[in-house]
């Protein structure tokens, strides 16, 4: 578990981080919490000549809530998400999810930016960001641009972020309503066997808006429009939820791993999605 030699850079502003990235090109990678990248380097599955540590960049920190808009700096840790009372009031889904990521030690260092930018289908926040219809801000040599979380993921570890760009913030509009992040895992620290993020709004007795996204059930996070559509306008009765689950399952393509074969994962996914919808509806 010893990585190959690398140079360590620790810029204090985004401009110098970008400059270092440009200088070393393919040789360089930015590191946030490091809980994905450092193990890969130790296993020598990733060889990084230049590691650019983002932790001294003040602009990447902080949670800002402005009316209905939430903006979270990429270097905000999972623990900071959990501890932020205002954020929890605005978007309780984030705290509920962050508490299900790894263990307290990892959460103290792991960041939201790293979690969403790495493109690891096992990470929990990408599906949550899709569920919230969040926007990722990417900063590169020619300025910043915004990409929707729902458009960001292309394949496992392949995202819309260009090599010379840094994901600097995530932002989303608070929608209210009921939420749930339901996750089945083998143990603390494990990736999901299946997980689902659900947001539901209620108007009278009917569901007026819905958003459903899933973790680790495909090579990218899966936001299922069809599943959401199946609930809107219904009273979320068991049959309605059944239709939504069926629609969600039609959008996933899990692969077999040590957690089990595809057949098992699809079955568990159905159970987890149903439970997430039920819980979100009970809170709506």
């Amino acid at each position: 578990m010893i990585p190959a030699a690398f140079e360590y850079h620790r810029p204090s502003d985004i401009a110098s981080a970008l400059a270092t990235l440009r200088e070393f090109g393919d040789e360089a990678r930015v590191v946030a919490g490091g809980h994905s990248l450092i193990p890969m380097m130790k296993l020598r599955m990733a060889s990084i000549g230049h590691l650019i540590d983002l932790q001294d960049i003040a602009d990447l920190k902080g949670i800002r809530i402005d009316g209905n808009t939430v903006r979270i700096g990429a270097m905000v840790t999972q623990q900071e998400l959990i501890d932020d009372a205002a954020l929890t009031r605005a978007a309780p889904l984030l705290r509920e999810t962050a508490l299900q990521i790894a263990d307290p030690q990892v959460r103290a260092v792991g960041t939201i930016g790293g979690n969403v930018a790495n493109g690891d289908p096992g990470n929990d926040m990408p599906a949550v960001m899709q569920c919230l219809d969040a926007t990722f801000t990417l900063t590169g040599p020619s300025g910043t641009r915004d990409v929707k979380a729902r458009d960001f993921y292309e394949a496992a570890y392949v995202t819309a972020r260009a090599d010379e760009e840094i994901l600097t913030a995530v932002s989303f509009t608070v929608s209210g309503g009921g939420h749930a992040y339901e996750k089945q895992k083998r143990k603390i620290g494990d990736y999901a066997t299946a997980a689902a993020a659900v947001m539901l709004q209620k108007d009278g007795t009917a569901c007026s808006a819905a958003s459903i996204a899933m973790t680790n059930l495909s090579d990218v996070p899966v936001w299922s429009k069809a599943a959401a559509d199946a609930l809107v306008g219904t009273a979320c009765n068991p049959a309605d939820i059944g239709s939504a689950v069926a629609a969600a399952l039609a959008d996933i393509s899990p692969t077999a791993d040590n957690r089990g074969p595809v057949e098992f994962k699809r079955h568990v996914a159905g159970v987890i999605i149903r439970r997430a919808i039920e819980r979100a509806w009970s809170r709506a």
Binding site: R186, G260, F264, H267
Partner: peptide, 10 residues
């Protein structure tokens, strides 16, 4: 594990 217990039931 979860899978094997699930398989029993299945």
């Amino acid at each position: 594990d979860h899978w094997r217990i699930w398989k029993i039931a299945h």
